[in-house]
């Protein structure tokens, strides 16, 4: 009898998963239990880190940006009251006049400000480069925000498409994963089935910035062609079979 822990040596490099943990008795050894607890502690702490919105604004320049916040007063409320995180604070409405544009990018902290700080600026830059001929609204940077805040923001600005870039909830292996949600004709009350999602944009075996940007542009162009986002817009991007790549 030989423990999987011994067998898995080199195979571990093929996945970020915690494979081959068991000892010869089929139990988890002390070291792996403590490693797990350490990763858990780091993830828990990451959730509470605040977003440096001004820093994001500098990072996405020269694209113009607006800073807004949701109706959530603090992180504790944010976790318990998703409804407040989906709505703009009333005082922010004045910063979002109905200018009309093809697409607005909304940056939301979600559950990982770290993900936003690590990935938003490069993904945004590469995505905008691929959208030649599209009018792009100001980047709206939203604190204590959930995905659906993009519906209200997109509606205020009169955008045809809203692309929300949001920090996904931290896991044990990755605490800086970025997710993207694309919605046509954003308006309060849109359902999840109206959106297309791209998840797992991060450096630990996730989607690279270039891959994410290409997929955003592909989905936007396809959505414009068929006049829809959501479950009717199928991701049939040929390069869509993702390769295992670093960011």
């Amino acid at each position: 009898m030989s423990a999987p822990a011994n067998l898995f040596g080199n195979l571990r490099t093929l996945t970020p998963s915690r494979v081959g943990v068991a000892t010869a008795d089929g139990t988890a050894p002390t070291r792996s239990v403590l490693d797990f607890q350490q990763a858990y502690a780091l993830a828990r702490d990451a959730i509470h880190e605040p977003l440096d919105a001004a820093g994001i604004a500098r990072a996405v320049a020269p694209l113009p940006s607006r800073l807004v916040r949701s109706q959530t007063p603090d992180r504790g409320t944010y976790l318990r009251r998703p409804d407040l995180g989906r709505r703009l604070h009333a005082e922010c409405l004045i910063d979002l006049p109905a200018i009309g544009c093809d697409v607005v990018f909304v940056v939301a902290d979600g559950l990982s400000a770290r993900a936003v700080e690590q990935h938003v600026a490069p993904v945004l830059k590469l995505a905008v480069e691929r959208l030649e001929g599209w009018s792009v609204g100001p980047v709206v940077i939203a604190s204590q925000a959930r995905v659906a805040i993009g519906d209200e923001i997109g509606a205020c600005l009169g955008a045809e498409f809203c692309v929300v870039l949001i920090g996904e909830r931290p896991g044990l292996s990755v605490s800086d994963s970025l997710g993207v949600y694309i919605t046509r004709k954003p308006a309060i009350g849109r359902m999840d089935s109206d959106r297309n999602c791209i998840s797992n944009i991060h450096a630990n075996g996730g989607l690279s910035h270039a891959q994410a940007a290409a997929k955003i542009a592909w989905l936007l162009k396809q959505a414009r062609k068929i006049g829809q986002t959501g479950v009717t817009l199928k991701d049939e991007m040929v390069e869509g079979v993702i390769e295992h790549g670093a960011v």
């Binding site: 093929l14 970020p16 994963s177 797992n200 075996g205 996730g206 989607l207 295992h244």
Partner: peptide, 13 residues
């Protein structure tokens, strides 16, 4: 599960 559906990564799991 694997973050990019890598076949080898999935096979290991």
């Amino acid at each position: 599960n694997h973050p990019t559906d890598d076949l080898k990564g999935i096979a290991v799991a």
